[in-house]
C-alpha cells in the first residue's frame, strides 16, 4: 500500500466516524465502538515494542492506568480540556516507560517482562494509597455538561478515541518503514549481531518503550469520562494487559495490520459476547484463543493469510 493511499484511507476513516455521529445512530454503538477503538490503541502501542523489537510488556494495564489517573489528577487540580489531558497523560506514561526500560532493558528480555508485570501491581498500590484521586474507594468524574458539535458526550469520546486509534496506526506504520523500525527488527531477530553491526540497541529499545508507553497512557486519558466512576481495579483491569498481548499475537506481530485486525476482531467479539454471555466466560475465550494461537499460528492471522496465499499461488 502506498503512503498517500494509506494516508487518505486514514483520513477517510476519521471522516466516516464523524459522519456516523450525524446520522442519529443509536448511542450504544458509539459506547461499544469506543471500547474496541481503545483496544486498537493498546494493541498497536504494545506491538511497537513487543512485535517490532520482541520485548514483551505485561504491564499495559499499568501504563493505561497512568493515563487514567494522570488525567483525573489534572482535572481535579486545573480542570484542563481533554486534548491537554491526553498530552499530559502520554508524557507521564512515556516517562515511566523510559525509567522502567532504563533499569531493565540492558538485561535479558525476560527481566523487562517481569518488571512490567510487577510495575502494574505496584502502581495500583500507589494509587490505592493516593486519596486525592479517590484512593481504593474510587472517584466519580463529572462529564462536561455540553460539548460543541456533538449531540452527546459519548459521541465526542468516540471520535477522540477514533483519532487516537488512527494516529497510533499511522505512527506504527511510519515506524515500521523507517530506519528506526528496521533497527528494531534487527534487535528482535538477533540483538547481539544488531549491536555489533552499528544498531544503537539500548537507545532504540528505550525509544520504543517510551513511545509504546505514551500511546497506552493516551488511551487511558479519556477513560474516566467514559466510565464516570473509576477505582483502581477498573483502571488496572488485567483484561487490558491480556488483550494488549493477545490481540497483536492473534492478528500477527510483524506489521501494523496484525494488531489492528486482532483488536477489531477480538474487541468486537467481546463486545457482542458481553451482552450474550457472562464476562468471565468472555475473558476465558480470550485467554484460550491466545494460548491456541501462540501454539498453532505463531505468526498470527496475517501470517497465516500470507502463507495460504503463497500456497495458492504456488499451486
Amino acid at each position: 500500500m502506498k503512503g498517500s493511499v494509506f494516508f487518505i484511507g486514514a483520513c477517510t476513516v476519521v471522516l466516516a466516524g464523524l459522519a456516523l455521529t450525524r446520522l442519529g445512530v443509536n448511542e450504544y454503538y458509539f459506547f461499544a465502538g469506543y471500547v474496541v477503538l481503545q483496544f486498537v490503541v493498546l494493541a498497536t502501542a504494545w506491538n511497537i515494542l513487543g512485535g517490532y523489537a520482541g520485548y514483551v510488556n505485561f504491564g499495559s494495564a499499568g501504563f493505561f492506568a497512568i493515563g487514567v489517573y494522570c488525567s483525573i489528577a489534572l482535572t481535579k487540580a486545573f480542570s484542563l480540556p481533554l486534548p491537554l489531558l491526553i498530552l499530559a497523560s502520554s508524557i507521564a506514561a512515556g516517562l515511566i516507560g523510559l525509567a522502567t526500560g532504563y533499569l531493565t532493558l540492558r538485561l535479558r528480555g525476560v527481566f523487562f517482562a517481569i518488571a512490567t508485570l510487577a510495575l502494574a501491581i505496584v502502581l495500583e498500590t500507589l494509587v490505592s494509597n493516593w486519596s486525592y484521586v479517590g484512593g481504593a474507594a474510587g472517584t466519580f468524574v463529572m462529564r462536561p455538561k455540553t460539548v460543541i458539535f456533538f449531540d452527546s458526550y459519548v459521541e465526542f469520546l468516540f471520535i477522540v478515541m477514533l483519532v487516537l486509534a488512527v494516529s497510533s496506526v499511522v505512527i506504527a506504520r511510519t515506524i515500521e518503514r523507517s530506519r528506526f523500525g528496521r533497527g528494531l527488527r534487527a534487535i528482535r531477530d538477533e540483538e547481539v549481531a544488531a549491536e555489533s553491526m552499528g544498531v544503537p540497541t539500548l537507545k532504540l529499545k528505550l525509544l520504543a518503550t517510551t513511545l509504546s508507553g505514551a500511546l497506552m497512557g493516551a488511551a487511558g486519558a479519556p477513560f474516566s469520562y467514559y466510565v464516570t466512576y473509576v477505582d483502581p481495579p477498573s483502571a488496572f483491569n488485567l483484561s487490558f494487559a491480556v488483550n494488549a498481548v493477545a490481540m497483536p499475537l492473534i492478528g500477527g506481530t510483524a506489521t501494523w495490520l496484525g494488531p489492528l485486525i486482532g483488536a477489531l476482531l477480538l474487541g468486537s467479539i467481546q463486545q457482542i459476547a458481553t451482552v450474550t454471555i457472562s464476562s468471565e466466560l468472555n475473558l476465558l475465550i480470550v485467554g484460550l484463543t491466545l494460548i491456541i494461537f501462540v501454539i498453532v499460528a505463531p505468526d498470527g492471522l496475517v501470517g497465516a493469510a500470507r502463507r495460504i496465499s503463497k500456497w495458492v499461488r504456488g499451486n
Binding site: R179, R182, R185, A186, R188, E190, A193, A194, V199
Partner: peptide
C-alpha cells in the same frame, strides 16, 4: 543472521547503521 530478513536486508542493516 537476522533470520526473518532476506540476504539483501541483512546487508542493509550494517550499511544503514
Amino acid at each position: 543472521p537476522f533470520p526473518t530478513m532476506t540476504v539483501r536486508e541483512n546487508i542493509l542493516i550494517p550499511l544503514e547503521f
